[in-house]
């Protein structure tokens, strides 16, 4: 229970500071200064943004469907936060004689649970976009659903290869499986193609550039959240950052060894359990932060796709590649027996 609360606060804090660091990274890439007025180095900017969002006037269009209009952002936020329950943050520690796992729930179908929740994420956008009763919002919602359905397939296929090598659907086991070679037996070494597919699909599922067609402001005003104002808009934007955080955590867990780090067995034998667990959590967070940075890096580097290019990439490139990856992994496992 405590862990759930901690996790919730951590997710929110990291997401809040992602909005700040997004602007800082953008400024760095474009050779600007970025926000630096609120607090030292502009560190209080997320707070100021939050207050601004809440204080703004809230408009619910009279032609909209009120219940669903309010429900849309709520569903988006709930599904964004739900995924974090199955992510293992570190090895289990012993407190007062009890073994405590640093994971909210190690359900034995963890990977599938994540896929399920991710596939539900589209409802918030679709319902919100439809309930706005605005053609731009509807177009954005339709684009979002098309995109998410298309990329979910390739994503699932690339994860299947990981499940085949690990032989387990539990994320805890998948991470534990990668601690061979002194904590360096990461899945990225065996599954480079799968990683690439998963990464691209993660970008598409988060609606991040170059896949931010549902909200492309040059064509659709604001996409699915055109009609939203105040904190409801804030929820939609914020959910994107929470999703980014969770995706980074998933990428780290599945392909970059989770909390495993080089020479971890040496560190384990030289420190006590609590310190070791803390180092593991720190390493995990560092990897996550790197991937969040990577998300931002891509955003300010690569321009947006055109919609037909997006569909072609999803169905004609990524899906066949992921099936090929699955077949190769299967063949490799059989020949190695």
């Amino acid at each position: 229970m405590v862990l759930v609360l901690v996790l919730f606060l951590v997710s929110i804090t990291i997401a809040a500071y992602s909005t700040f660091s997004e602007r800082k990274v953008a400024a760095f890439i474009q050779d600007r200064l970025g926000p630096n007025r609120a607090g030292p180095f502009g560190l209080l900017q997320p707070l100021a943004d939050g207050v601004k969002m809440i204080m703004k006037e809230e408009i619910i269009p009279t032609t909209s469907n009120t219940i669903l209009f309010v429900g849309g952002p709520a569903i988006t936020m709930i599904t964004a936060l739900m995924t974090s329950a199955v992510i293992p943050w570190g090895p289990s520690i012993t407190i007062a004689g009890q073994k405590v796992a640093l994971q909210v729930a190690d359900i034995n179908v963890g990977v599938l649970y994540v896929m399920g929740v991710v596939s539900l994420g589209v409802y918030g956008i679709m319902i919100g976009g439809w309930a706005s009763n605005n053609k731009f919002a509807l177009l954005g919602a339709v684009r979002a659903s098309t995109q998410m359905i298309s990329y979910e397939l390739a994503m699932g296929m690339s994860v299947i290869a990981i499940i085949m090598t690990t032989g387990s659907l539990s994320i805890g086991n998948i991470v534990h499986h990668q601690n061979g070679w002194h904590g360096m037996e990461w899945n990225i070494i065996a599954q480079p193609l799968g990683f690439l597919i998963f990464l691209i699909c993660a970008f598409a599922e988060c609606n991040r550039t170059p896949f931010d067609l549902p909200e492309s402001e040059t064509e659709l005003v604001g996409g699915y959240h055109t009609e939203y104002s105040s904190m409801k808009l804030g929820f939609y934007l914020f959910a994107e950052y929470v999703n980014m955080f969770i995706s980074s955590a998933m990428i780290t867990c599945l392909y970059f060894g989770g909390y495993n780090f080089p020479l971890m067995d040496w560190v384990q034998s030289n420190t006590n359990e609590i310190w070791f667990a803390l180092i593991c959590v720190g390493v995990f967070l560092a990897k996550i932060i790197f991937f969040i940075f990577f998300f931002m890096w891509i955003r300010w580097t690569i321009p947006r796709f055109r919609f037909d290019q997006l569909m072609n990439l999803g169905w004609k490139v990524l899906l066949p590649l992921s099936i090929l990856n699955m077949l190769l992994t299967g063949a490799f496992i059989i020949f190695n027996q």
Binding site: V118, S119, T146, M148, I149
Partner: peptide, 14 residues
């Protein structure tokens, strides 16, 4: 959830 809620019902909504 994945098959019905995540895929089929999304298509229905669509």
């Amino acid at each position: 959830i994945i098959v019905y809620a995540g895929a089929i019902m999304v298509l229905f909504l669509y």
